[in-house]
Structures are given as structure tokens and as C-alpha cells.
Design a protein around this nucleic acid. Structure first.
Lengths: 344, 344
DNA sequence: CTGTGTAAAGCAAACGGTTCCACAAAGGAG
DNA sequence: CTCCTTTGTGGAACCGTTTGCTTTACACAG
């Protein structure tokens, strides 16, 4: 059916090996032969069978992106799409294909990734999230597979990862509010099993303590990366006797929920409450009021992760090499935090 | 290195063919042999080499998602992520892997898809968008490849596609505004090369004409699926001498830009201007005010497209079969349109 | 004219499976 | 008891490439 290397060889009057060598620019092929073979490939519409190639070369030129289980429930879509865009762009640029994989649960995830990796369908994996205790990471690490973590592993030091300095970023965001005169600052966190939640919480606490400010347990609430979490958090906060005058939130989308909640309760931002969140998604500057947010270079993270993984795959130095790449962050101040001290 | 079918065979004291048959549940394998072989596969940690399997079976059990070139510029991320989620979920459920592909330009796109399809890396393709004149579709159609279009083709009738009835949906949205008493209704469209833009414009015009209402050219502006488009459109509209009292917008994200613009100009929604848009993304209910929006079941579209494609791949009836699947839509009315007639 | 070096191309064995065909053993019909 | 099925398994060819080892064909030195 499809045209193979043999068809090309026959028509060109050479052997299949010669055609193969033309394809890989082998030095000992005469210019004339090369030209003729290429011409015929063109004419016949030849495309190398990637499977056959992979089989013999034992490499697939493709990588796999592991989506978190139930991405829809835990995270904001924007974050992942942006990460994926960065990964795919860089991978394609390097001639790699990208596979998407996910699982209904953790067991599924490990099995899926094992099937792909052990079954030689992909050469490596990128994990889009970091959980505190992740069986997928265990599997990858123990079987010596190539992989890159977006985020940070608490268990293994010697793995490839791309991350934001979340402690520092959160410190900066909190510091910003402190420098505006706020004394009572709240924090809305993400799911506790995510490393990012812990890191940002830590930065927040550190900033408070460095400034000699108090941090009350009731000023810290856990949520998910969803509007609803913000919406719920805010009714809690605003009913506190000594409620915060400012909040740090781990994600812009949560802030949208907060804005909505405040609007319904007839509070004004930033007059009654100041907000700073993370990710700086495009909508952040379109909300009312526009959100102050820490830009963490999501696309860049994906791009870099992809690059690191492909590099690791190509130079097959089997030693595990520590390479934690930290993408710089930047606090973008907008209206949601620009008034100094709320009247209340 | 890796454990192969031969290793399993040797250890089990059977031939490779027997192991292969166990794997594929061949009827003429004794229960005892099957049990023993499976046990050994487990023990050795055997995973079939997917490449080798594909090579001989001439099928890959994977499909490819074609991302639009420069997705970031034309579309709202949410839409694609949701589509992808639907596709991946259904594909995985059927044992298919999903590849992501994109190209810097149209030539790139065709080449990429040709490489994957002719090179037997994937069995079929899903296109996430419909352009009025798409070389990728031409290629797929003419080479008789399996593919599904999200949207609608203007050139070919006999291809698989999943779509919203955009004309009707837009008609409904416009009708909703008309029934609230609006006489001057504007329209913010998407890029003109997208079929969805044309269809929604048509539904809008049809609703107006059915109601005996006028439609002025200056009430219609083209934009992209970005906040900025809405932001720009609104300053144009509000400066018109006989400006619209309501607008239909092709995407929620555009509406966010509009909301921002109106806020800055000190207009109120819905008092000064009513809005209805499309897609009903989760943030639509969190904006101020919450947006009326046509829910088009994005996840469902992806899910269905995936299902159709896999079906087409598995029953390899080579006849082209028309199958246009229309996902039902539903107008979700919220505050951005609930007042009957603006004061102005 | 033989021997040697080198460039160009061919042969054949993998890579890890699947599957058609052959064949032995066992069971059933006559 | 033969003969014919059925059942369970093994052997080998093949899927489309790559690649190490040869072979061929010159060119040129001795």
C-alpha cells in the first residue's frame, strides 16, 4: 500500500540500504545518487515509516506530557494550556512529537506511563505538577526513566525540574502588601498535597514574621484552583471579627471568585480589601479592578522543561544529574492592591 | 535490555508465537498455558513494544490533535483545553494515545500532518477549528485520511465533523435580546476566515431580519477571540450616534474586554448595555456582572469528535461517510442581559 | 601487470512483534 | 481400529528500517 524504502530503491535502481543512507546523509553516498534518490522519493511521495525507524533505532523522538488526574477539578485551565503550548513549541522545534496522557487515578497514571515508557512509545515524560508524595515520580525515578518535573520534588534531590522560586515569589507578594501598610494579611492556599501550596504558604509566613507581623490561623484557608474556592473563602474572611485588610491568593482564578464575592457583599477592591495573586493570566488585567499578580512565566516553564528533557534524552548520560532550573518571576502591580491602607 | 516476548517465551518454555497468542487472547490457547505465561510476564515486568506491534499490525492506536497555528493569538485558551480534555478522555478510554501537533504556518501544518499520517505514526487527525479554505483539510480529504473536523467545512460535504448549530445558536442569542425589547443590537465577530464567525453573524442577521429590525454595518465589528478585541470594540460602539443597546459577542473572553472597557467609561451593564456571548466558560458566572452566554458543550464536542474518529478508524470502511454531529446548545441567561430596556 | 587504497553501494541480520501454515496429540464418529 | 476433526503449539516469514560487514570498481603506485 504505502510506498516504502524498497519501492524507492527499486525505482532508483539501488539497494534499500543506499536509500536509507541518502535519508540520513551518510557521507559515503555520491552526490549524483543522492540527487536521483531524493528525486524519486519526491515523485513517489515517500514518507519514512516512523514505527519501523523507532523499532530499530530504539528511540522514538517523542515525549509525553502527564496531565494531572482530573485536571478540571484542581487547576485553572489557563495554566496547563500555556505550559503545554511551551512544551509543544519547543519539542516540535527539536523534531519531537508530544503525547498527552492522563489517568483517572494514581494507579492509572503509573500504569499509563509505564506502558508508554517500557513499551518504547516515548523517550521521556514531563509532569505538569508536583505532589508531595507522588507514585508516578517514584516509578520514574526508580526505573531510571528520563523525566522533568514542573515544580519541585520533596523526596528526590537529584532529578530534573523547572520551577518558580515560590517561596520567594510569595514573600515578594506579601512584602508588597506589607509595604503598603497592611498589618492583617490573609492567605488563600491551594490543595495541600501540592508542593506549590506549601511553598507559597511558607513565603507568606516568612514575610510576615520578618516584618514582625502576626499571622493568625484563621487568616489562612485552603482551597482549590477554582473560582468557587475564592467565592467561599471571602464570605469566611469578611465575617471574621478582625478580618484581614489584604489577601495573598495562590491563583488568579481564585481571585476572580473573591472579586465576585466581594461585589455581592458590597465591598470594594482595593478600598475594603487588597488582593495579590499568582500566575498573571491575561484576564488578570481585564477584571474589575485589574488584579495585581505575580507573573511566573508559565510558557517559559513549559518551553524550558521540554528543552531539558530532550537534552537529557539525547545525551544519554545515564547518571542522574541534578538540574533545577528556576524561572524568574515578577510582581505585576495593578489596581487590586494599589491603595495604601483601607479605611476600615 | 528490555524484556521481550522471547524472554517470556524462553522462561515459560513455550514459543514466542504462543506468548503472542496469550497476549491477544487467542481462542486456541489452553487455560493452563495462558495462566503460566501471564504469570511470567508479570514476574519479568513485560511490556509489549508498541512500535513493533504497530509495524506489523499497520495501525498505531493513536490519533493526532492539530492545534491551530498560533493558538495563543486567535483563540481563548479555555476553549482548546476543554476540547482537548474531551478528546483525550475518550481516546484513552478506548485505548488510544493522543499526539499534539501544531505548525508555525499552513505549510508547516500540512507537512507535519503528512509526516505523521503517511509515516504511520497516527491513524487519524482531529482539527480543532474550521477555516474557510484550509489546505490541511484539502490534504486530508484528497489523500483519503481519517479525520474529524470540529466545526464545519464549507467545501466538502462528505466529511466527519462535530459542530454547534452556530446559526441557530446565534439566532437564539439575538432573539433573546430582541424579546427583551432591544431594537439596536450590535455584533462582535471573530476572525473572518473562521467558519464559526460567519455562521454566528448569519444567525444574528437572520434574527434581526425576522423581527423586522434594522442592522447597520457599523453595528458589526470583527475582532479576535481576545479581551483586547472587546476592549477596542466597545469604545467604537459607545461613540456611535445611535449606538446599540445590546451586543452579541462570539466569545466570553471578548465580553470580559467589553466589561472592562465599559467600566472605565463609566457605563453599567446591563443598564446601559446588555451583553450575550458564547462558550459559557466557568469564569462567565464570576464576572461582574455575570455573563449571559450560550453554552455549546465544548467538552462534549471533543469527546464526540474523538469517538467518531476512532470509530472511523476501527471500521475501516473506506467509503467516505457523511456524519455531521451537532451538539445541542443552551442559552444561559445571567445578569448581563436581564434588564428589559436600558434607560438611554 | 599486480597489489593496495579508497569510494560507493549491496547483503543480510537485526529490532520485537504477528500470523499463516504445518503438525502432533487427543477426541469422536463410523 | 481406522479416519477425520479439533485443539494446542511451534516454525518461519514478514512488517520497514538501520547498519556492520562485504564486495565491486576504479585509480594509482610500484
Amino acid at each position: 500500500m504505502a510506498v516504502t524504502i524498497k519501492d524507492v530503491a527499486k525505482k532508483a535502481g539501488v539497494s534499500p540500504s543506499t536509500v536509507s543512507r541518502v535519508l540520513s546523509n551518510h557521507p559515503r553516498i555520491s552526490a549524483e545518487t543522492s540527487r536521483r534518490v531524493r528525486e524519486i522519493m519526491e515523485e513517489l511521495g515517500y514518507h519514512p515509516n516512523i514505527m519501523a525507524k523507532s523499532l530499530v533505532s530504539r528511540t522514538t523522538n517523542s515525549i509525553c506530557i502527564m496531565l494531572p488526574k482530573s485536571a478540571e477539578e484542581l487547576f485553572s485551565n489557563f495554566f496547563f494550556m500555556e505550559l503545554i503550548r511551551g512544551i509543544v513549541t519547543q519539542a516540535n522545534r527539536q523534531g519531537f512529537d508530544v503525547l498527552l496522557s492522563s489517568g483517572a487515578n494514581e494507579k492509572d497514571e503509573v500504569e499509563g506511563v509505564a506502558r508508554l515508557l517500557n513499551g518504547h512509545r516515548v523517550d521521556g515524560v514531563i509532569l505538569l505538577y508536583s505532589r508531595t508524595d507522588d507514585p508516578v515520580v517514584d516509578f520514574l525515578y526508580q526505573n531510571n526513566h528520563k523525566f522533568v518535573l514542573i515544580g519541585r520534588s520533596e523526596q528526590y534531590a537529584d532529578i530534573l525540574s523547572v520551577d518558580t522560586d515560590n517561596v520567594q515569589a510569595s514573600y515578594d507578594a506579601t512584602k508588597h502588601l506589607i509595604s503598603l501598610g497592611h498589618q492583617r494579611i490573609g492567605f488563600v492556599s491551594g490543595p495541600p498535597e501540592l508542593v506549590v501550596s506549601k511553598d507559597r504558604l511558607q513565603g507568606y509566613l516568612q514575610a510576615l514574621s520578618n516584618a514582625g507581623l502576626e499571622s493568625k490561623p484563621e487568616w489562612i484557608v485552603e482551597g482549590e484552583f477554582l473560582q468557587e474556592s475564592g467565592y467561599r473563602a471571602i464570605s469566611f474572611f469578611m465575617n471574621l471579627p478582625d478580618r484581614p485588610t489584604a489577601i495573598v491568593l495562590v491563583d488568579d482564578v481564585i481571585s476572580f471568585g473573591v472579586l465576585r464575592g466581594l461585589h455581592e457583599l458590597n465591598y470594594k477592591v482595593p478600598d475594603d480589601l487588597c488582593l495579590v495573586s499568582f500566575n498573571n493570566i491575561p484576564l488578570a488585567e481585564m477584571s474589575t479592578p485589574p488584579l495585581s499578580s505575580v507573573d511566573i512565566g508559565i510558557y517559559n516553564m513549559g518551553y524550558t522543561a521540554s528543552q531539558m528533557l530532550i537534552q537529557a534524552i539525547q545525551h544519554k548520560d545515564n547518571d542522574k544529574v541534578t538540574a533545577r532550573y528556576v524561572i524568574p518571576h515578577r510582581l505585576v502591580v495593578r489596581e487590586s492592591s494599589i491603595f495604601s491602607v483601607p479605611k476600615a
